[in-house]
């Protein structure tokens, strides 16, 4: 059943990783990504992996959950790995078969590429695991606040994102209901070729869209009735405030990036 899909992979907790300001966490992830792309050697990759391991440890998120997050992108990881392995030109040929050449550089590239993607994904997932969607949205809105000057509708985008998050479970439930109702009328979603299967979705998609529009309309009225008039003059129940732990975390983040950059300069 659709209901079993876990959405908004947030694992509530009370660790420092959970308590950090969402803005700090977003910035840290940005720094982490910068560092990852600066890393060039086994040593620097090792440092990044260590950083991630420390963060995972602090957040008390099970490593198994993090690894599970890799599953959906497993194909991309393998694909990138194989591509790098087979198609990197280089001097030291380890193995060759027809037009395929596995070189020492290729092997190196493949390992680093795979490492980079895995670290990247696990790091970002660690943020979503420790930050509720609503505070993530909040953090993004506040971080991007400056863009308002350039007429970027930051508040509107954040509002849209949080409404989407709010309605995902409702729409999933609704899809389930409509599917059952059409099945009760003999609809068949399993058999047939691809075109027939796509056609069989019409009885689900049409009601779902109509209902989504109706919901949007009613929600808009309800929001207006509660005095919604855009982001101007809005206050917040939860105001984001940087604490000393945020400054500490950001300092560490900057130091790591600097260290990786220096090591790269030194050719390490």
């Amino acid at each position: 059943m659709l209901k079993d899909i876990t959405l908004g992979q947030y694992f509530p907790g009370n660790t420092v990783a959970h308590k950090l300001d969402p803005r700090t966490k977003i910035l840290l992830v940005v720094l982490y990504i910068v560092a990852l792309f600066t890393a060039k050697s086994l040593l620097t990759y090792g440092i990044m992996a260590l950083c991630l391991a420390v963060c995972v440890r602090i957040s008390r998120v099970g490593i198994r959950q993090l690894v599970r997050g890799l599953k959906p992108v497993l194909f991309i990881i393998i694909f990138t790995g194989v591509l790098n392995l087979l198609f990197t030109p280089g001097e030291t040929e380890l193995f060759s078969w027809g037009f395929l050449h596995v070189t020492g550089e290729g092997l190196r590239n493949a390992v680093f590429m795979v490492l980079r993607i895995m670290l990247l994904i696990m790091g970002t997932f660690l943020m979503t695991y420790t930050t509720s969607p609503i505070s993530l949205t909040d953090g993004l809105e506040r971080l991007l606040n400056g863009l308002k000057r350039f007429h970027v509708p930051v508040h509107e985008l954040a509002m849209m994102m949080s409404i989407a998050l709010r309605f995902i479970p409702t729409l999933i439930e609704e899809t389930d209901k409509i599917m059952s109702a059409q099945k009760a009328r003999g609809a068949d979603f399993e058999s047939g070729n691809l075109i027939q299967k796509a056609k069989a979705l019409i009885p689900i998609l049409v009601p779902l869209f109509i209902s989504a529009f109706r919901r949007a309309d009613e929600l808009a009225t309800a929001m207006e009735c509660r005095c919604y008039h855009g982001g101007e003059g809005r206050t917040k129940l939860h105001v984001l405030r940087y604490e000393s732990r945020d400054y500490v975390a950001l300092t560490i983040g900057v130091l790591v990036v600097a260290a990786v950059a220096v090591l790269r300069r030194l050719g390490l």
Binding site: P133, I134, S162, I163, L165, R166, T170, R214, R215, E218, L219, A222, M223, R226
Partner: peptide, 9 residues
């Protein structure tokens, strides 16, 4: 409709 007037999650 209770579902269509709740804004936040």
């Amino acid at each position: 409709n209770p579902d269509n007037q709740i804004v936040a999650n």
